[in-house]
Write a protein that binds this DNA or RNA. Structure first.
Lengths: 252, 252
DNA sequence: AAGATACATGCAGAAACGTGCAAGAACAGG
DNA sequence: CCTGTTCTTGCACGTTTCTGCATGTATCTT
């Protein structure tokens, strides 16, 4: 790992997550905390970050405000994400939904994975800009602030022109009888359009979503290849889904 | 293995992986690290790569350095940006190009401005997510890593379906005779498509770009409403543009 | 106030660097 | 075909830079 590469990594981290914890980065990159501190000192001297006790923050408070909402993914979500990232085959095409779980998946993709990622989320697209081998295709349309993704007629139409091996969808509710649901009709339609363009569709759902349902149905279970979750395999909802023939991938 | 062959290999590696580690390449090609270093020195002297301790990085590190470029908004660029932001009328529609200057404009837009922003840059879209009153429309397509915007046939086609009062374009070169230029053909085509959909098109150009030209022409001066720059009004290039009838907005 | 954590500094080993040099290949001219 | 020149390449050397550890100090937390 080159020093300059570390610097870029740190700046990327800063932009994406809004903060740097020296200890974590050292563990993540397998280098000493001293090196991280030295790097941060260098960056700070160039005005590229603001040094604080324990790590660093972006220089511009505006960035912080934005990044604050994109808090670091909780442990369960991260596990789900890395499990899902493992499904992506080199050379394959992946349709990636918006939302925090999908963002965690994007971050979990290996830096040098050569694949095509199709998304309607500008946030996810921005997060994947530093993956040199990844071909990115953005589905345009009106941006729904609520979820920060492109939805609506234009986006659905754009989705008709792509196809992929795998589609990873986040949802709000996962219920054995009701199916998969979300809180916005446009979003639901968009997710349907995405799922229709992939050979396989997997659902990303951390355990707290199991057994709940929202207002708008996305898809019935028949259209789904499987569910990726961090719930216990013996969870009541999980067992009912298994009985229904849904493949369950758990982090356990 | 010929020297020129090695050079090609190195540039390819740089493009594919975003970095070169001298030691690894030496082992891979079965040549000494000294030769690799010499090659890298040559490439760097031609401006084809950026030498760093341990290897080399792309010279225009769209991939790696993008985050860095985002954080630093030099004073001149910020002034240009806030001047441009002042052109946006409440209730109006704005087509905003990609690039660092355009990003600075996005950041300079008042938090509560009620307007529509159309862009082909996921980065800009992400930056405007926290403007509650701003309607966002994203133009999709293949993402060009070099500039981090959607370009190509799909993006140009998507642009045909929008229209706006104002278009703000960033360019690489601003030359009285040659016109407005940029370094990539696809980008140039996309900028043309954007400009064609707006009633008025203004160019964003910090002073160091004045009098320079790149490979691909974007638009002739006739199609441009004006130039927004931080250059001195008595600058030689500025005066020649004024003589040509181009409206100049300066921060002075 | 005390323990824990993060920090700066100095230091030593390791890695990368530049330079000079010699062996070899490619080439031009006789 | 031979010879001298030039260019390239790898090695050796001394120098610079980086990195992790140890030390003592500063800062945070409880």
């Amino acid at each position: 790992m080159l020093a300059a590469e570390r610097h870029d990594h740190l700046l990327g981290l800063l932009a994406r997550e809004g903060k740097i914890v020296a200890k974590d980065v050292a563990a993540e990159l397998g280098i000493s905390e001293d090196s991280v501190r030295r790097d941060l000192r260098d960056l700070a001297s160039e005005g590229l970050c603001q040094r604080v006790y324990g790590g660093a923050l972006p220089v511009s408070p505006a960035v912080v405000g934005y990044a604050a909402r994109q808090t670091v993914a909780p442990d369960g979500k991260r596990k789900v994400a890395s499990l899902a990232a493992g499904l992506v085959r080199p050379g394959g095409a992946l349709i990636l939904d918006g939302g925090t779980t999908a963002l965690a998946v994007a971050r979990a993709l290996p830096q040098n994975l050569a694949c095509t990622v199709i998304t309607h989320s500008p946030t996810i697209a921005a997060a994947l800009l530093d993956h040199p081998q990844t071909e990115l295709f953005l589905l345009g349309g009106r941006i729904f602030k609520h979820s920060a993704v492109a939805c609506g007629a234009a986006a659905v139409e754009a989705a008709q022109n792509v196809s992929a091996d795998l589609c990873l969808l986040g949802v709000t509710g996962v219920h054995p009888e009701v199916g998969l649901t979300t809180g916005d009709a446009e979003e639901a339609a968009m997710k349907r359009a995405l799922a229709a363009r992939a050979a396989d569709t997997y659902i990303l759902a951390s355990s707290e979503k199991l057994g709940t349902a929202s207002q708008f149905r996305v898809l019935p279970w028949e259209k789904i290849s499987g569910l990726i979750t961090d719930a216990d395999p013996h969870d009541a909802v999980v067992e009912r889904l298994t009985a229904r023939g849904v493949e369950i991938l758990t982090t356990g």
